[in-house]
Design a protein around this nucleic acid. Structure first.
Lengths: 192, 192
DNA sequence: GACTCCTTCCTACGGTCCATAGGTTTCAGC
DNA sequence: GCTGAAACCTATGGACCGTAGGAAGGAGTC
């Protein structure tokens, strides 16, 4: 029997592809094994459990999005920087719904610390650097950005913006207004 | 064998309690049946499937939160109204994590239309009424509020605000700043 | 080129759960 | 007491997770 050449990384990658195709909650080890042409238990050499496989999708997606955000942020500041970060998440959530959902998984402290999460925090701080905020205010701003962008992506993914009347404004239009709002808020962010 | 007296409503209520205790993803029909002292298949008289049970938790939670928001909004406007709506969601997400998670489930169009979702949209519109926005801008504002509050609750629930350094500002403090930001944005929300 | 041994991958298995099929019992109303 | 519609049951099949223990591929050694 020829060996397939499984590795932890290849399993994680396949899990990510599968997640995008069928949704993160349908990423089963059975389906992954079938995709590799391998018996289910063989995967346990490379992944500890089903939950572990999903966490690895999250780590992979966090790395990917961090790279995308870093690239999008190059050479821009102010509202453009906000649009860059928000745009990456919005586009990623549409293009890779399973991976995006994985980024919303709660990670334990050690895993979170060694993930690209801290890099995301750094990138967000960089995105608001142009607004010349203090240390603490920058933290608040990073949280505001994270909450807004992820909340927006989540509502969009859940179809919440499509449940209204047909003449309602488009999600794109609302997103521009959201960026306007964030920009205005950060521009005149007087310290309390 | 004495009958337990199951009804769809009682099953949904039990599912909600269970969801808060063990998490929405662990709401199994087996666990529900055990809680009632009943065989698993007996539940199918009242609920179509496991997914149906979870959707019913969502509908129940949307009703509950709509009532809470309506009560919190009574007699307030402006920033206080924003704080009222946001405060309800934040408190609910902490007090009823399983129910809250259920409110994030995607619903099909018919279910969404007959849920308390439209009432939530109406309530949010009422919350921003004091800012005297136009029809379209009000829609944008409602989306902004929804995205921000739910994104914030999600990040908080995922522990994203606890992964930072120990001297980072509290989640409560950031939330106040978020309210400030939303208030400032809506106050000077010039039409494009 | 045969040997060794680590690793990969296998079969076999037990357990939990969802969901359907079809029978039995409870109980309200007559 | 009778009847019929429920509620609730047992039996069953199927999907999946995860463990145990064995067989086989293949890299490195002599």
């Amino acid at each position: 029997m020829p060996r397939v050449g499984l590795t932890t990384a290849r399993v994680a990658e396949a899990a990510a592809v599968l997640a995008d195709e069928v949704g993160l909650e349908h990423v089963t080890l059975a389906a992954l094994a079938q995709r590799f042409g391998v018996a289910t238990p063989s995967l346990y050499t490379h992944v500890r459990s089903q939950a572990d496989a999903r966490v690895r999708v999250a780590l992979l997606a966090l790395e990917e999005t961090a790279d995308l955000v870093a690239a999008a942020l190059a050479g821009v500041s102010g509202r453009d920087a906000l649009a860059a970060v928000g745009g990456v998440w919005r586009a990623y959530a549409v293009a890779h719904p399973g991976r995006y959902a994985a980024t919303r998984l709660p990670l334990d402290a050690a895993t979170a610390a060694s993930s690209a999460g801290p890099r995301h925090a750094e990138l967000s701080r960089a995105a608001v650097r142009g607004y010349r905020l203090g240390e603490v205010d920058a933290t608040h701003a990073v949280r505001l950005l994270g909450a807004t962008f992820h909340g927006y992506a989540a509502l969009d993914a859940a179809g919440a913006f499509g449940h209204g009347p047909p003449d309602a404004p488009s999600s794109d239009a609302s997103f521009e207004r959201v960026l306007d709002g964030l920009h205005a808020t950060l521009t005149s962010w007087e310290t309390r």
